[in-house]
């Protein structure tokens, strides 16, 4: 099957930056995203992860190399609108991406841009709102919504356009824990519905919800592993300035103190089990 998105030998630098200094925001990126995948991209500030996200729907164009979405190249201007329909994007700041004065009008915005006939809109709006759990809030004004609700509204706006891929560009970083959780849950739900999800974040805990984790640092892809492979080795994330999930950190420190634990764990529950076991042996 043809991959959903192909990033082929992409180099990118922002305009105005000195060309000879050779400061690339992205260096030699080669990635493939398959249909229905749930991928997360983590990296510290300035690692290039948001830049990469913007290359995926043609908001930025590669200086060298090529980005292809379902066979369409982002360099081809006439395909750009179809690419943006296929690759929906939710941004970091919930306030700065809602256009309209009511929930329902905002979901309609993308459909209006696509030229969807009005008769079809009603149904698509309702379905999108239901999918993110905002049914019945059609007439609400965005500034009366919580942060988490605003991000779910942004998701609904993207979803109504029936995209194949949804890119969350640090979409949870400005939310409270409840909001973060809600948005991540909706993302997981959409993944079950068959959407390809690309979640960009700097939180390792969120990243491990995905099936595959890509680690970026200074414009390069450092790691690209299934999350259950990376998870036990998560301590290595430290070298790129990333936080390690607390249970992994604890596990490592206990091992360091000579506790008789198994060398790898697959989750919080397993660590708890292990600790119980070793305590009862003493």
């Amino acid at each position: 099957m043809e991959p959903m998105i192909q990033v082929v030998d992409v180099w990118f630098r922002y305009q105005g930056e000195n060309e000879s200094s050779g400061k690339w925001a992205l260096k030699k990126i080669n990635l493939t995203f398959r249909t229905g995948e749930y991928v997360s991209i983590i990296g510290a500030n300035g690692s290039g992860k948001s830049t990469l996200a913007r290359l995926l729907n043609g908001l930025l164009l590669p200086v060298r190399g090529e980005v292809k979405v379902g066979g369409l190249s982002t360099a081809n201007e006439s395909d750009l609108w179809e690419i943006r329909r296929r690759v929906g994007m939710v941004f970091q700041n919930p306030d700065n991406q809602i256009v309209a004065t009511t929930v329902e009008d905002d979901v309609a915005f993308g459909l209006e841009n696509l030229g969807v006939p009005r008769s079809e809109m009603k149904d698509r709006i309702e379905r999108a709102l239901a999918a993110v759990g905002l049914s019945g809030m059609n007439a609400r004004e965005p500034h009366h919504l919580s942060g988490g609700q605003k991000q779910r509204l942004a998701l609904a706006g993207v979803l109504a356009m029936s995209p194949d891929v949804i890119v969350l560009d640090e979409a949870t970083s400005m939310l409270d824990p409840q909001g973060k959780n809600d948005v991540s849950q909706v993302a997981a739900e959409l993944h079950r519905m068959g959407k390809t999800i690309i979640h960009i974040t700097h939180s390792a805990r969120e990243a491990f919800r995905a099936e595959r984790v890509i680690v970026m640092n200074q414009g390069e892809v450092k790691l690209d592993l299934p999350s259950e492979v990376l998870y036990p080795k998560a301590v290595m994330l430290k070298q790129w300035g990333l936080a390690v999930p607390p249970e992994i950190e604890l596990h490592q420190r206990l091992l360091g103190k000579g506790w008789p634990l198994s060398p790898t764990i697959s989750g919080k529950e397993e660590l708890v089990e292990e600790i119980w076991r070793s305590l009862s042996e003493i």
């Binding site: 729907n57 908001l59 609108w81 943006r84 329909r85 929906g88 994007m89 941004f91 700041n93 700065n96 991406q97 256009v99 915005f109 993308g110 841009n113 696509l114 942004a154 706006g157 993207v158 356009m161």
Partner: peptide
């Protein structure tokens, strides 16, 4: 940012 978001939504 809004302009970018609008463009991303086609």
């Amino acid at each position: 940012e809004l302009a970018l978001a609008m463009e991303a939504r086609g």
